[in-house]
Amino acid sequence: MATYTHPEVLVETDWVAAHMHDPQVRLLESNEDILLYDIGHIPTALKIDWVEDLNDPVIRDYLDAERFAGLMSRKAITPQTTVVLYGDKNNWWATYAFWVLKLFGHQDVRIMNGGRTKWIAEKRELSRVVASFDPTEYPVPTRDDTAIRAFRDQVFQHIRHEGVALVDVRSPQEYTGERTHMPEYPQEGTLRGGHIPTAVNIPWSMAVAEDGTFKSADELAALYSAQGITPDKDVITYCRIGERSSHTWFLLTYLLGYPRVRNYDGSWTEWGNGVGLPISKPYQR
């Protein structure tokens, strides 16, 4: 059985249990349901609120470099700290936070395989106490949007070229346009259903096992190569707002070692509402 290209970015629950009091390690919990942290989290873990902490309060973009440095300081993180992320939804938001940290160049970031669900299933210790750490001095970094982030106009050009690939990680019903509105996510509404032309549909959930851990390298390689998503291509992933697609971006980049993968965080809420943008919609009522 093949191994992951970068196995060091995944840590198991045993590793976290052994290192959660290590001063060189900072655990961060990032959930879709921001109340979960308060009812019980891994001892010493701090909370990352994907809305309040990672996003700009006005424009649709991420926090700037100064705010990022302040966030890292408040979370007692230095550039040398090993940051371990985990959360609900099989680590949707953990990989999203991982992606944002990589935009700012933090070196040692890891994901706890299986996330919050696996930790709880194993009946491991939970705490309601918010750990307290002294703030650090985190230098203001440079945010690099070029290597791992794709923008709308880049996607528009991307679909016109050969040797590229576009992965829609949403559900098949979203991909075909059968499901346009998401009542559970009113902030993600779009006027049009369907998918970006040339995109193949590989739902993010196909990459995880029943316990929430990532499938094996062999299984993942077979899953993506079967749909033409191969390492020789320039790959862009997308979903509705960029969180599910960060999960696929993470596994393609780090577990399978694809060298050119970007996450289109504008995703369908931008594309499906954009004036004049082409849409494929195989589903018709």
Rank of each mutant, 00 (worst) to 15 (best):
Glu184Phe: 10
Lys281Asp: 05
Gln173Lys: 14
Gln24Pro: 10
Ser246Phe: 00
Asn91Tyr: 04
Arg240Phe: 04
Glu12Trp: 11
Val208Lys: 12
Leu36Tyr: 02
Thr13Met: 05
Gly194Cys: 07
Asn273Trp: 03
Gly228Trp: 05
Ala222Phe: 09
Asp88Met: 11
Tyr258Phe: 12
Arg26Lys: 04
Thr117Asp: 14
Met112Cys: 02
Val100Leu: 08
Gln154Met: 11
Trp93Val: 08
Ile159Phe: 01
Trp271Arg: 03
Lys75Phe: 08
Leu256Asn: 11
Leu103Tyr: 08
Asn91Gly: 06
Ser216Trp: 06
Ile229Ala: 07
Pro183His: 12
Glu125Asn: 06
Ser280Gly: 09
Leu27Gln: 00
Tyr283Trp: 15
Pro141Phe: 08
Glu243Ser: 13
Ala18Phe: 08
Asp53Lys: 04
Val261Gly: 02
Ser225Thr: 14
Asp56Ile: 06
Leu28Asp: 04
Leu85Trp: 08
Ala17Gln: 12
Phe68Thr: 08
Ile39Trp: 04
Leu36Ile: 09
Met20Thr: 11
Trp119Phe: 02
Phe156Thr: 09
Ile196Thr: 03
His19Ala: 12
Ala147Leu: 15
Leu220Gln: 06
Ala150Asp: 04
Thr180Lys: 07
Phe250Asp: 07
Leu103Ile: 09
Ile159Arg: 00
Pro186Gln: 10
Asp88Glu: 07
Ile196Gln: 00
Ala65Gln: 04
Gly276Ala: 00
Gly193Ser: 09
Arg160His: 14
Pro231Ser: 00
Pro186Lys: 10
Arg160Gln: 15
Arg60Tyr: 14
Arg262Gly: 05
Gly189Ile: 08
Val109Tyr: 02
Pro231Tyr: 02
Arg262Ala: 09
Ala199Met: 03
Ile111Asp: 01
Val58Lys: 14
Val100Ala: 05
Leu35Glu: 15
Val169Thr: 07
Ile279Cys: 04
Leu256Lys: 01
Gly115Met: 03
Ala226Pro: 02
Lys89Ala: 14
Ala18Leu: 13
Arg170Met: 04
Phe151Pro: 03
Pro282Met: 03
Tyr138Phe: 13
Leu103Gly: 03
His106Cys: 04
Leu46Ala: 15
Glu52Ile: 12
Val235Cys: 02
Ala147Val: 15
Thr190Lys: 08
Ala69Ile: 06
Pro23Asn: 02
Trp50Ile: 12
Ala76Gly: 08
Leu220His: 03
Met20Asp: 11
Leu191Glu: 15
Thr253Tyr: 00
Val208Asp: 09
Met1Ala: 13
